[in-house]
């Protein structure tokens, strides 16, 4: 490199030097993530659409019930209870949407660019394969949970405003509405859940899908499902055990005891920071994710267009 081109790599121990260096490392990552959102508009369109559909459904329902709310205060209390359960439904819907989007996004992320040959263009720019793969991983791990959180929060506020307007129009007190809204009580806990479970706990899943999409000669969906099926099948036939299946179940749903009994309390407790981060399974999962990602980076480097 010649002299004019080195302000970035020049050793400089001043604060600006560090800042500049961090920004040169982060800039490609930042633009790569933006690029993913440009390319995959469904990543925000789908949650927005889900929120809008949910909101309009609830609104139609509320407007229909307007008269009866005004007529009876008991009924108004019932509606308040109904609304608070609606918030949980919305949060669940958003999480499911984000999970499905993540799976389809990861499967196509490194496969699509090979199929349409645009990988040749991306590789002609000074963005390393590591940056490219990390930017793609950050979509399911970071961007989608945050987007889902933001959209859910916004939808819940809108629902609150609409229902308040309807209640106020019917002359019913709205304080109950605002005290029961889960969005106001536990948004931070919920955000924490998204980051830990959807980000960290599911990371091996996303990393596996990315690896498959970097490698698959065609039909990444099939290649992603085939190995788990084969392993489960062989294990069952050869040893008549199902450790691998249990392992997958545990990864997806949490442990069996949590599902079989009414252990919501246990489940929440297991998410408490000191439980969650001291769980060796979390760290094993992250190590596995790191291995998959490393392989995906290597794979992206050597794979050309198909």
């Amino acid at each position: 490199m010649n002299a004019q081109s080195t302000p970035i790599t020049e050793p400089s121990f001043q604060w600006e030097g560090y800042a500049a260096r961090i920004s040169t490392a982060a800039r490609p990552l930042y633009w790569s993530i933006r690029r993913e959102l440009w390319e995959n508009r469904y990543l925000y369109m789908a949650p927005l659409a889900a929120g809008a559909v949910f909101l309009s459904g609830v609104m139609v329902n509320m407007i229909a019930m307007r008269r009866r709310i005004a007529a009876s205060s008991d009924y108004a209390a019932q509606v308040q209870g109904l609304l608070s359960s609606r918030y949980e439904l919305l949060a669940g819907l958003m999480m499911a949407t984000a999970l499905i989007l993540s799976i389809f996004y990861c499967l196509d992320a490194l496969y699509g660019e090979r199929r349409d040959r645009s990988i040749l263009f991306w590789k002609s720019l000074p963005v390393s394969d590591v940056t490219a793969v990390i930017s793609k991983l950050s979509i399911p791990v970071l961007v989608l949970p945050l987007l889902g959180f933001g959209i859910t929060l916004a939808t819940e506020y809108l629902m609150l405003l609409v229902s308040s307007a309807i209640f106020a129009g019917s002359g019913v007190s709205i304080t109950g509405l605002w005290t029961q809204a889960s969005v106001l009580r536990i948004p931070l806990i919920w955000l924490y859940h998204l980051v830990t479970v959807h980000g960290l706990w599911y990371a091996p899943l996303y990393a596996w899908l990315l690896l498959v999409s970097a490698w698959a000669p065609r039909a990444p969906f099939m290649w992603a499902l085939l190995p788990p099926f084969v392993i489960c099948g062989v294990e069952k036939l050869a040893f008549n055990t199902s450790y691998f299946l249990n392992l997958l179940q545990y990864r997806f749903m949490g442990s069996r005891s949590m599902q079989s009994h009414d252990h919501a309390q246990d489940f929440m407790a297991s998410l408490l920071p000191h439980h969650f981060f001291s769980n060796p399974d979390l760290w094993t999962g992250l190590v596995v994710a790191a291995v998959f990602l490393f392989a995906a980076v290597r794979m992206r480097r050597s794979r050309g267009p198909i």
Partner: peptide, 17 residues
Amino acid sequence: DLLMRDVCFIADVAVLP
């Protein structure tokens, strides 16, 4: 990635996404 700061290439006319 470092090399691509000094090198440009057009691999094919049809590779722009």
